[in-house]
């Protein structure tokens, strides 16, 4: 093979890079709207699943269906420090696009879910009837049928993202689901299995008058005697520990706790 000149090598490399970048950039820009739509749709579907309005085993709903069902969902914004609730568009926008540095850092010794920091303003999704507007705390008390809380936390291998939904008493669990997780398939990965998730239904987060969540995932095979105990998954003790810590963290005083207290006390 004859030796190629240095100039030719540079020219070929340069031209190739330009052509490839144009190719890749065009595809990325042209497809972006579709990808964004997919992401929004997927998030909405997961909220609907948590609220109990969509059953994924019956197939993935189409965009129109989701649009209609989502009229029963009212996103509200919660100040994670004080538990104050905001209903206005501006606050929703602010929670959607948090200003950099506004996150609340969680000290290592308190960070049981290993999230490092949480947003200052977090979303809670309220399930209500389609026609009922919710604009005040009083509306919330009268019309909320379920509260859906986004949760995330470290499992055995990766961060698990999901939702936990509570009844209006903010103690009884109506559902839990994980839409993104990287646990061992067949073992810890079973946290995504609806059959296991159903074991959470009607369990309670706080036993008696406890102020911090007492909900516990038992080791597999242990007798389940209390209504704040959920059966564990065989061979998934560490993943279950992660799920337990995640739920306890987010519903505890460093998570949505202040908001939960506010609603429980009937604060206007």
């Amino acid at each position: 093979m004859q030796q190629d000149s240095v100039l030719k090598t540079f020219v070929v490399a340069g031209v190739l890079c330009v052509v490839c970048s144009i190719f890749v950039a065009t595809a990325a820009v042209a497809l972006k709207p579709y990808q964004e739509a997919n992401k929004t749709l997927d998030k909405r579907v997961n909220i609907l699943v948590a609220a109990g309005l969509v059953d994924l085993s019956a197939g993935y709903p189409d965009a129109g269906e989701v649009e209609t069902l989502f009229e029963c969902i009212r996103p509200i914004v919660v100040d994670m420090k004080s538990g104050a609730v905001f209903f206005d568009e501006e606050s929703l926008h602010k929670a959607e696009n948090p200003s950099p540095g506004s996150e609340i850092a969680i000290a290592r010794e308190n960070d049981v879910a290993r999230v490092r920091h949480i947003p200052q303003y977090a979303f809670v999704y309220v399930y209500k009837d389609a026609g009922t507007p919710i604009t005040t705390m009083r509306d919330l008390h009268s019309y909320a049928k379920r509260y859906v809380f986004p949760i995330e936390g470290q499992g055995l291998w990766a961060t698990m993202y999901g939702f936990i939904a509570l009844e209006p008493d903010l103690n009884t669990i109506s559902s839990i689901n994980f839409y993104q997780q990287g646990e061992t398939a067949g073992l810890g990965g079973e946290i995504a299995n609806p059959a296991w998730q159903r074991k959470w239904v009607d369990k309670v987060v706080f036993a008696g008058k406890a102020s911090e969540p007492t909900i516990t995932i038992l080791k597999y095979g242990f007798p389940n005697e209390r209504d704040d105990q959920v059966d564990g998954i065989a061979g998934s003790t560490l993943t279950c520990k992660g799920v337990q810590n995640t739920v306890r963290f987010w519903l505890g005083q460093r998570g949505y706790g202040p908001f939960v207290n506010k609603i429980k006390m009937g604060d206007e």
Binding site: L16, A28, K39, D42
Partner: peptide, 22 residues
């Protein structure tokens, strides 16, 4: 050169999947 060509194609395929088979 081969790597650049392959990488570009894979990125585009990945973008298509994210857009139409999310």
């Amino acid at each position: 050169v081969q790597m650049v060509v392959i990488a570009s194609l894979v990125i585009v395929v990945d973008q298509f999947l994210k857009a139409f088979a999310y």
